[in-house]
Design a binder for these strands. Structure first.
Lengths: 204, 204, 204, 204
DNA sequence: AATGAATGAGTATTCATTCAT
DNA sequence: AATGAATGAATACTCATTCAT
């Protein structure tokens, strides 16, 4: 039984990983189910044993990738002490993930609303969760006096906006050898932190 | 003679507008050329008289939309006096455009790198142009002492990042009645401007 | 296992036979793949499981028909004792094949160089093979003293020229009830044999 | 008026010549009416002023080419004194025509019965005319005692069969530098003439 | 559970022909 | 008579999905 589960689980994962590879390389429409099956070294029909359709497989693949990202993010954030530290970790982890999963990033960043309502909704939802999670963190941080009181929603948007655009730069543009993205994100963080900094009187 | 041009130009434009409608509603892959032709009230073959392929039509449509956006943006920006004013106009115009062309916005925001190299490249290029144009403006503004000296590249990313994410909120999320995007963008601008504000000593 | 092969082989052959029927009736361009599939009682996609394209199917069909013709020809020729006997068998078998496969003959006789380089080349090659095979036979026959020494190439051309034109008469012209093609070919053979006959001194 | 006719006639001929060029190069199906119009330097619509359809244009083009061939053939044959001389002229003129109109020859030789009943019928008819004309000539020659009495139909088939196959060699095969077609046809003629030669006793 | 042979719905594109000018 | 912009019928081919084994 555990054997069956193992084999079964193994295959499911193998298919998801194969899907990641193929979908990332070719995009949803140009990727062929048969190709994914080959990559996973399973029969074409087997893919349909685990996923109801190509679209569902695509969705599951995205969820899997996103989960991986969130896991590593939470792990890092839990160790952050100051807000600046947290921001830096956020930028760091996100950029690394994007760099490693460049092709997948294309999909996550350039959320494809036209691929289908369902997929789009899930991605939007994930983004909202992230924004809300950031909002909560900002409330804590505000309470702790690390930043001045602002609309945490607006602040979240500024933070993730900068983050996503920088990641876009990392991923989409091939002249990435020249640019120091490390420093770029540092400067963006500086601007944002200053924008959120508590009133100057404290500096006196 | 002018008649011929008019008719001819008319048809090309009619097709582009029809394409905008259909592509926006259904996305590239689900849109059918025949449907676009019907919408434009021309024969299917006529589409191919003006555009070499479905893809070229798609690209031309995007360029047309983008041009419209840039035109209205430039017009507004030319009237802006302070940097804050400019930023507000930028957010204003962009949000309005996105609201009015919701479906097209889906495409512009969620730049589809997987649709094809060529289209992706053009979109990236447009984005880079916008970032650079903002960088230049920031240099002027810095020289005028309106903001402190920062990496204009980083600052541009922060600004457009916030802008795009807010537009995404406007477009993607249907609960937009509740949220006051006007105020949201105002708050984001406040954060950003503070982040870019000249040293506090001036405040003394 | 043999079942699987049988079924598989069956389908391929069924498609080829259907193709023969449809292509012969309508020619390459007017024949529709779907029609061939229907005739073979298989799905349209199945045709493409066995043949990469309409053109390849066409080529395979021709090769199949040609093979059938050659097989029956060789069988007959192996039994021929004199050269006259061989010539008669050649004319006999060829005319019979053409009569039975009238429509296919249209294609084989009227080799379509404009259908595509590849198909044309294969057909030319087959014809050359036949000419060469005849040349060799003529050399043997010459050695045996049955005919006088001539350019075997020229002789082959005369023989096959007459053969093809007679077959053309059989196939292309519908007033074939009136004409006695049996006798016509006999007379042609007589003329040719006389043209190749050894010097008259033997007649003394 | 004569001007109009001239221009008119000019255009018709220009179109036919352009058609010859394009059809020969690409074959019926791949040739485009627009291309022919361009080659003839007339508007696409103008083609339809002179020819009811692409197919009719094709037919007219073939008739025109065939007429040219027959004219030059008759001119040469009228000067021939002996039968051998006539045969040689026939082979000569035909081979030259085929060499000069290689691509057209592809169409004339490889009579395309599948292009359409009408075209096929005309071509068959032309061929029959040629065979009959040869038959008549053979009757004259027989009467003059140049050849022995044979089925003139059979003899015609032998003659044209050899002729067509040799022309096919000239046209279809690109290794035509090596082969001496002049000599090849000479040898074929020798064989045929011997096959038709009067009884040997006359030689005594 | 696993497979892959079979299927057919779905679509971009071409090009002969027309007809208003 | 001459034109070419406009048209839409016509068709090969792909690939997600199914199902018998």
């Amino acid at each position: 039984m555990s054997d069956i589960n193992k084999i079964s689980g193994d295959k499911r994962l193998r298919i998801i990983k194969a899907a990641t590879k193929i979908f990332s390389r070719k995009g949803f429409h140009k990727a062929k189910v048969e190709e994914i099956a080959e990559e996973a070294v399973v029969g074409k029909g087997t893919v349909y044993e685990y996923f109801a359709s190509k679209k569902e497989l695509f969705l599951e693949m995205i969820l899997y990738a996103h989960q991986q990202y969130q896991d590593s993010l939470e792990q890092e954030l839990s160790r952050a002490e100051t807000f600046r530290d947290g921001l830096q970790k956020l930028f760091q982890v996100t950029m690394n993930f994007m760099k490693e999963h460049k092709e997948m990033a294309l999909i996550l960043l350039a959320d494809h609303p036209l691929l289908g309502e369902d997929i789009h909704k899930v991605l939007c939802q994930k983004e909202q969760q992230q924004l809300e999670s950031m909002s909560k963190m900002l409330q804590d941080v505000t309470r702790r006096g690390e930043i001045r009181p602002v609309s945490t929603h607006a602040a979240s948007l500024v933070i993730f906006g900068a983050l996503y655009l920088i990641c876009g730069q990392v991923v989409f543009h091939e002249d990435n050898q020249e640019t120091d993205f490390q420093q770029l994100s540092q400067e963006a963080i500086n601007i944002i932190l200053r924008g959120l900094a508590p009133p100057v009187k404290e500096m006196l």
